[in-house]
Simulated assay, not measured.
Amino acid sequence: MAAELRVLDAQVDHAEWLRRWRDTPSREPFSHPAYCSLFAEEGIRATALAADFADGSVLFPVLVKDLGREPWAGPDDRRRDLSVPNGYGGPFVAGTVSEQECAGFWRLVDGWACQERLVAGDVRLSLHLDEVLPMRGWETVHVSDNVVVDLRARADPCAGFSSSLRRNIARAGRSDVEIGQARDVVSWEIFRKLYTETMNRREARSDYYFSAAFFAGLRSRFEDAGLFLAYDAAGEALSGELFVTSPSRSYSLFSASSSRGLKVHANEAVKSEAIRHCADSGRDCYVLGGGNAPDDGLFQYKLRFAPQGRRAYYVGRRVFDRTSYDALVGERQRWALRKTGGPYVPDRFPAYR
C-alpha cells in the first residue's frame, strides 16, 4: 500500500504533476497540468491524486467542485463532487501496480473523499482502459460509443471516409473553401466566436460554453493544441477544428461552423485537413468522440469519417455519501418546481446536476 496520497494543485504543484505526467506512457493531453488548470475557477479546484508503489505510480487528475456554487444548493453548502476536465480521464498508471496496491490506492481516495465531503464522482474514462487503474468500488458504465479514425491503416487517411463524405469534401473545394492551420491570437478569437455561435444554434447546455480567457489560455499555456480554420474566397470564416495531441494520438476537442459553413460542407473539409495533418505528424489515430445520445445524428455524422471506427466508451460513477446524494436530488427537484412549476427529470449522473 502507498505510504501516502499526494494531492497536487495544478498551479502550486505544477512541476511535480508535470514530472508524474511525463512518467505515464501515453502522456494524455487531458491529464496535463496546464490543460487541467484551464478549468480551475472560483469553487472549482484542478487537482491530481497521486501515489507511488513498489514498481509503479498512479496519477488521477480531477476537478473538485463546490456544490455551494450551484443556485439550487445555496452558498452555505460545504459539500463537493468530483469530475474530470473535458475529454477522457481516469487514474493513469506508470509502471506496474498490483491488485493489492490498487485496492490500497482506492482506500486512500475514499479517505480523502470523506475529508473533502465529496458526495459523488463522475469520470469519463480513457478509451484505452488498459492504461488506467481498474475503478475498484466504482460503477463502470458503457454509456455510448465513440468514433476513432485509424491513421495507420492507409497511406491516405481520408481514403477510408464514406463515399458521401468524400463527395461533400469535393463540393467544398468547388465552393472555393480555403483551409489553413491557425496559430495567431486573432484566428483563435475567430474560432471562439464561431464556437459560441454553434453552441447558440444547438441550444447547448451552459457547460458547453467556454470563456475568451479559456481559449486564450489553451493557446498560450498548452502547446499540444492545434487549430485549422476554413474560409471562403472573401475571407469569411466558415468552420474550424480545434484538436489536442499526445505523442501517439490526436483528439478533436471543439468543432464549430457557421450556418453557411454547413451548407458548403466546410465543416467536413476542415476536419479532414486536421486528420491529414495529424497523420502526417506521426499520430496513430484521431479521436472524434461521440454524440449527445447513442447513435444520434451527430454520432452518425462522425461515423462517416471512420465507418469501422466505433469504439466502446465508459464512464466511472461513484456515490460517496448516499444520504447527501439523495438529499441533493430532493433539493434540486424542489428548486426546479419553484422555478418552472414542473418536475425535475434527471438526464445524467449525478442526478442532482
Rank of each mutant, 00 (worst) to 15 (best):
G309Q: 03
H277R: 10
H277I: 05
R310G: 01
L303K: 15
A306G: 13
G282E: 08
K302W: 00
S281T: 13
V287Q: 04
G289R: 05
S281V: 06
G282H: 09
I275M: 11
N292C: 09
G282W: 10
A306C: 11
R310W: 06
Q308H: 15
A279M: 07
G289E: 09
G297Y: 06
P307F: 01
Y301L: 05
G297W: 08
C278M: 13
A274N: 05
R311T: 12
L288D: 03
A279T: 07
C278E: 14
S281C: 08
L298V: 15
R276D: 02
G282Y: 09
Y286F: 15
G290N: 04
L298R: 02
A306F: 02
A293D: 05
D280V: 09
G282K: 10
D284A: 13
G297Q: 10
A293Q: 14
G297D: 09
A306K: 08
G309I: 07
G282F: 10
L303C: 08
P307K: 13
G309C: 08
N292R: 11
Q300D: 04
P307T: 10
K302R: 00
G291P: 01
D280L: 12
R283T: 11
D296I: 07
K302M: 01
A279P: 03
F299A: 14
Y286K: 07
G291S: 01
Q300A: 15
F305Y: 15
G290C: 09
R310V: 07
N292M: 12
Y301M: 13
L288S: 00
L298K: 05
